[in-house]
Design a binder for these strands. Structure first.
Lengths: 147, 147
DNA sequence: GTAATTGCAAATCATTTGCTTCGTA
DNA sequence: TACGAAGCAAATGATTTGCAATTAC
């Protein structure tokens, strides 16, 4: 069994534990999120080959909402018309660079310097269950070239 | 002249430099952004006393777009239905904590540890004009209490 | 005076909801 | 079989756009 398949079945287990039923639409969403390293937009989910035509958008939105409530995926706030989601794997925090021109998202291979600040923020503000999101924005080499 | 008025007239100067005409709607938007420490949602702009009734939403959206293109304001990606904007004052970088329950946004009083990473990211990825956005999310004390 | 900006109405796009039918547990 | 999930259609909300009237420079 490949690493990916393994993760997928583990994700399905987590859904089961949360009382969700395992349906075709759910498997498709998780499989797609699992196949990408970076965040995925709702739009690209809806347009993806496995989903478009076979699942209703309302179904996808409902599933994403439920997955988020159950802590299996996380919404992340990139500047785009369409919301982005990513698997919420503990200890797998990643940061991104986003091209303000074409919207391209790259995953950064670096140690995140902010993790240790979460406790500090929590202590200073009284907020609970604090996590963070860090994004870099700029113009990607392709777009810069095109100018 | 107060600090705030001073900043406002400076903002209007920047707009003039960018070739924008100084209209009532523009002044209202900048004045409101200037009066807040944290980010402002489009919704709250539209609902604000000075604007609602006297300016058309389309006008506000168009101005915000133009202000962003001209680098006078920045869009920031908090998780909410409505987009957030903030004045783009150089050297005035701020980070935030957002309550996932009520949406309350607090400005953090701390030195941001990420600024120095921007150059590194730029070097590693080839992206240009890199800046960053850092947000913390959690449950604010009020909401935690309400549970 | 003239080109940019506004207001209004209509169009678009993302997301949500109601309700009936379907399929997993 | 029963209850959660899916599909479909209609509602909502945010944002965009076309165009004629207005206004800053």
């Amino acid at each position: 069994m490949s690493k990916r398949e393994d993760t997928l079945s583990h994700l399905l287990d987590r859904c089961r534990e949360e009382g969700m039923r395992i349906t075709a639409a759910l498997e498709k969403i998780l499989s797609l999120l699992n196949s990408k390293e970076g965040p995925v937009t709702v739009k690209s989910l809806l347009k993806s080959k496995n989903i478009e035509g076979s699942c209703d958008p309302a179904t996808i939105y409902r599933l994403l909402q439920k997955l988020e409530e159950n802590g299996i995926i996380r919404k992340i706030g990139l500047h785009d018309r369409s919301t982005h989601f990513i698997l919420n794997e503990s200890g797998q925090h990643r940061d991104y660079v986003v091209c303000l021109d074409c919207g391209d998202v790259e995953v950064l291979e670096m140690t995140c310097p902010v993790e240790e600040l979460e406790n500090k923020v929590s202590k200073n503000t009284g907020f609970q269950d604090v996590y963070h999101e860090l994004q870099f924005y700029g113009i990607c080499p392709e777009c810069a070239k095109g100018k």
